[in-house]
Amino acid sequence: MARLILVLGLLFLWAPILLLAGYAFSADRIPFQWGGFSLRWFAALAENARVQEAALLSLSVATGAATLACLAGGLAGWALARGGRFCGRPLFGLLAGAPLVLPEVVMGLSLLLLFVLAQGAAETLLGWRLERGAGTIVLAHATLGLAYVAVLVQARLARLDPRLEEAAADLGAMPRVVFLTITLPQMVPSLVAGWLLAFTLSLDDVVLASFVSGPAGTTLPVLIFSSLRMGLTPEVNALGVVILVLVLAAVGVAGWVLRGRGGDPG
């Protein structure tokens, strides 16, 4: 029964994607109309420097943001689960979860205000003319991803029996050694999951990026969203296929490298 629903659910998730992938090879100018097999949209993509630039920017922003989110979010999740009592802990917990609930529109807007303020401060105090651009998008996406990573890590550590760590400490392990040999390895699966989640969120985001970006900060989703007036061309389908294949390959490699870790998603 559960398996049937898994198959149905995967079908629901994949049907539009397969359709999209299939019609990426259609010659017709109107998407989702079959006009004979053709690679013209992939060729068009290969010639479209704007799209390539944006795709490259998107992938690097997503990688940077996911990595930052993993570092900061991993620490935040650890601090919430194992940091003990410290000043401002309730506030910390609230803030770590806030990006999950802030509507993107609101978060984008408030971050924009902050960056503008920071730009002003940098110019008057340091004489620097900072630009909004890829960097601000990375910060915004990392903040969003941080919340997801923190939640995953915190949940993971909450289920980890603290006595395991206490036992190691009792046996004379330094706190750092306890962390590195016991806590961190237990965090790894949730960090990997969190990285993927943060990467995905970043790759998908239109709203945050369009708020906080500046010149030459057009990520792929923003570019497509803003060129909707050209209509959805099959080029967009081709692009979806290319990204999907790229990311799947990357995940496949990562999975293969990590396969020693027991293949346990939790």
Partner: peptide
């Protein structure tokens, strides 16, 4: 860079320091 609506343009501009 391109925009699709005046809102996007004004959103960028009205906060200041757009860089454009």
């Amino acid at each position: 860079d391109v925009y699709d609506s005046l809102e996007t343009l004004e959103g960028k501009l009205s906060s200041g320091r757009s860089g454009y």
